[in-house]
Amino acid sequence: MLSLSKRHWSPYVAGIVIGLLQIPAFLLVNTALGASSSFVTAGAWVASLFDAGAADIAYFAKYMSADKYIWQSALVIGIALGALLSARASGSRRAAFSPAWTRLTGVTSLGSRLALGFVGGFVLLLGARIAGGCTSGHGISGMAQLAVGSTVAVAAMFAGGILTAALMKKI
């Protein structure tokens, strides 16, 4: 059922596997699953290359040193490695960018898609940092802890996504 060479797992199996990762996260790292903090860790190091004062900003300093952010940075690199392994093992080949974008937004060149992707990534992390978490931290982890704020965050995320997707062509 959990074969690496299979092209697909049902969303239920995948969700159960991801949900079970909460157990080592809580027991071994004393935190919940999350992903967006790692972008602050990366950003803090990048900023400190250009600005000697960046590490003195309290928000950046926190994300450069604490154990759970070191763990989370490794986690997101692991996500890339796991997806690479999974795609290779199952022969799932991909284009330079998903053909779904041509259908949704009409882009046909990689350059245009890179530009929209960069803007999307910027908005994505700006929102996640303002909200204090993303679809993992607020979504999967916050809902599993019955957190009131995370439930509001998830509702707002779906609202923002639904409104934006409504402006695109139907997939």
Binding site: G120, L124, L126, G127, R129, V152, A156, G160, G161
Partner: peptide, 9 residues
């Protein structure tokens, strides 16, 4: 933040 994040997704 959640709304902006949703737009970003």
């Amino acid at each position: 933040g959640g709304l902006i994040l949703g737009v970003g997704i």
